[in-house]
Every structure is written in structure tokens, then in C-alpha cells.
């Protein structure tokens, strides 16, 4: 019996070592740094004080960027949900032989670098980009529309990055639903819409919430779309951390902001796990 207990641990030890060295240790460093001080020359002074955390909350500028990040994350989640549920439902219902290839299309963006995908929006949304070019050529507008360097462009960049995560999560959840349940509901008098509303939708909720959580967490930590596609005022919390760490060499304060973000996201994940169960995400990812 004792032998059985340590065998899984032994098998897991390479992974656990990697996680410990590459995740736990760096996070501990960040936490320790968050209590340090920064000298005017940029050097770090070891200390144990909460000044960096107090600085964050004493000045509304920093929480406002965090709130802005949460708002953008929420908007992205809602858009991803609406845009992701429809194709996921289509994949679930379709009997087409092309289904595997259509599913492949969802994965296709992952084959291209995230930076390149984000940069490509400049050629689509810019003043001399594809959309403005076509609208100007067609005579619908006389001057280019401001489509780039604003929040809309940032959310567009986030959507193209995160939509596959939402689609795959929902699809995996839908795929696990016994199709005879909806048939039974319809045979008992439900319309197709009622069967969807009363049977399919509730049963797909674990996938929906898993997708929402993944999209939300990934958006909160994103850095590139606001930097490349955003304009003045579209800064998110990851950009702020970058500026504090790289721009002003203020590692202690940058670490404190990172810890605050980490705790907030940890709280969200904990809440989710308590009510929905975190295993749904792993199920979706492994099946996806």
C-alpha cells in the first residue's frame, strides 16, 4: 500500500520539479521583491515593508487601470461567448464529413505567431488599411475611419487571440451531451428552440463558464494587443507592470502590482472552482 502512495509522486517528480523551479520559485521571487525598496539610482534595497502595496491603493490611478483591465476582460468575454457559441453549436450539430477540417480552422490561428497576428490588424484597420481602402474606393466614406489605436481595435486583437479557447471549451461541453435528450424533449412537445433553451444550453454551461474563465484570465494578463493596437488611454495592467519593471527599473513596485493581479485572479479562479469545478477546463483542453 505504501509503495502505491509514492509511485505516482515519483512519476510526477520531473513535472513537479519543473513546475517548482520554473513557476513556484519565480513567483516567490516576485513576492519577496514586492516588499523591497527601490533606490533613486535604480538599485533594489532589501526590506520588509508594505509601501509598494500602499502606494498602489493610495492613488486611484493604479486601481483605475486594474478596473479598466477588468472591464475590457469582461467585454472580451461577452463578445467571445456570443461569437464562440454559434460555431461550437454548429460543430456539435453538423454531420458533415468536413467537420474535422472545420475544427482545424479553429486551430489554424495557433500556427501563426501571436505577434504577427496582432500586427496584421494594422494592415486591416489602419487609415490606409484594407477596410478604409475598400470603403473609400466604393465611395461610402470621404475620409478614413479611425478604426485603429482605440479600445475597439484592442478588443478585436483580443478576440482573434482568445476566440478559439472559447469555441473549444463550449464544443467539448456540447459534445458530451447525449443527443437523445433533445430528441426526447422534442418528442414530448418542445419546439427546437425550447429544447435548446431547456436542455442543451443548461447542459453546456460548464463549458461556457470554463471558456469564460480562461478568456477572462488570459485577457487580464495580456500585454501585446493594447501595446500594438491601443491608443492613448487603452493601457492595461500588464502594460503598467512592464513600464514599472522595464521603464523605471522599479522592480519592487512592479512586483507588488503583479502580486495584486495574481491574488485577484486567484480569487476569481477559487470562486469558480468552488461553484463549477476547475476540472472542466482541463477536460476541455485535453479533449480539444
Amino acid at each position: 500500500m505504501k509503495e502505491k502512495n509514492w509511485k505516482p509522486l515519483l512519476l510526477l517528480s520531473p513535472s513537479l520539479t519543473a513546475v517548482f523551479l520554473l513557476l513556484v520559485v519565480p513567483v516567490c521571487f516576485v513576492v519577496v521583491y514586492s516588499f523591497w525598496l527601490r533606490a533613486p539610482s535604480g538599485q533594489d534595497i532589501p526590506a520588509f515593508q508594505f509601501g509598494n502595496y500602499a502606494k498602489f491603493f493610495a492613488d486611484f490611478f493604479y486601481p483605475s487601470i486594474l478596473l479598466n483591465t477588468l472591464r475590457v476582460a469582461l467585454e472580451t468575454v461577452i463578445l467571445c461567448l456570443f461569437l464562440g457559441y454559434i460555431p461550437a453549436f454548429f460543430f456539435y450539430k453538423t454531420q458533415s464529413r468536413l467537420k474535422p477540417y472545420l475544427m482545424l480552422l479553429v486551430m489554424l490561428p495557433f500556427w501563426i505567431s501571436f505577434i504577427i497576428r496582432t500586427l496584421s490588424w494594422i494592415n486591416i484597420l489602419g487609415d490606409s488599411g484594407l477596410i478604409n481602402h475598400l470603403l473609400l474606393k466604393a465611395g461610402f466614406i470621404s475620409a478614413p475611419l479611425s478604426l485603429l489605436y482605440n479600445e475597439g481595435a484592442v478588443i478585436m486583437g483580443l478576440l482573434q487571440y482568445l476566440l478559439p479557447f472559447m469555441i473549444l471549451n463550449i464544443y467539448v461541453s456540447l459534445d458530451g451531451i447525449d443527443k437523445s435528450l433533445t430528441e426526447a424533449a422534442q418528442s414530448l412537445g418542445c419546439t427546437e428552440w425550447q429544447a435548446f433553451k431547456e436542455v442543451t444550453l443548461p447542459l453546456s454551461m460548464p463549458g461556457v463558464s470554463a471558456g469564460c474563465l480562461l478568456v477572462f484570465v488570459l485577457t487580464c494578463g495580456t500585454y501585446l494587443p493594447p501595446m500594438i493596437l491601443g491608443g492613448p488611454g487603452n493601457e492595461m495592467i500588464a502594460n503598467l507592470i512592464f513600464k514599472r519593471v522595464i521603464g523605471t527599473l522599479d522592480w519592487p513596485f512592479g512586483s507588488a502590482i503583479s502580486v495584486i493581479l495574481m491574488l485577484l485572479l486567484g480569487l476569481i479562479v477559487y470562486t469558480y472552482n468552488r461553484y463549477m469545478g476547475i476540472n472542466q477546463i482541463f477536460k476541455s483542453l485535453s479533449n480539444g
Partner: peptide, 15 residues
């Protein structure tokens, strides 16, 4: 003035 002004500049950019 680096630390003080860099932070103020960040505020301007962020609005």
C-alpha cells in the same frame, strides 16, 4: 527626477 516624472508621464498617457 526620473522616477517621479516617468510615473507622471505614464499617467498622462493613460489619461
Amino acid at each position: 527626477h526620473q522616477l517621479e516624472w516617468a510615473e507622471k508621464w505614464d499617467r498622462i498617457m493613460a489619461g
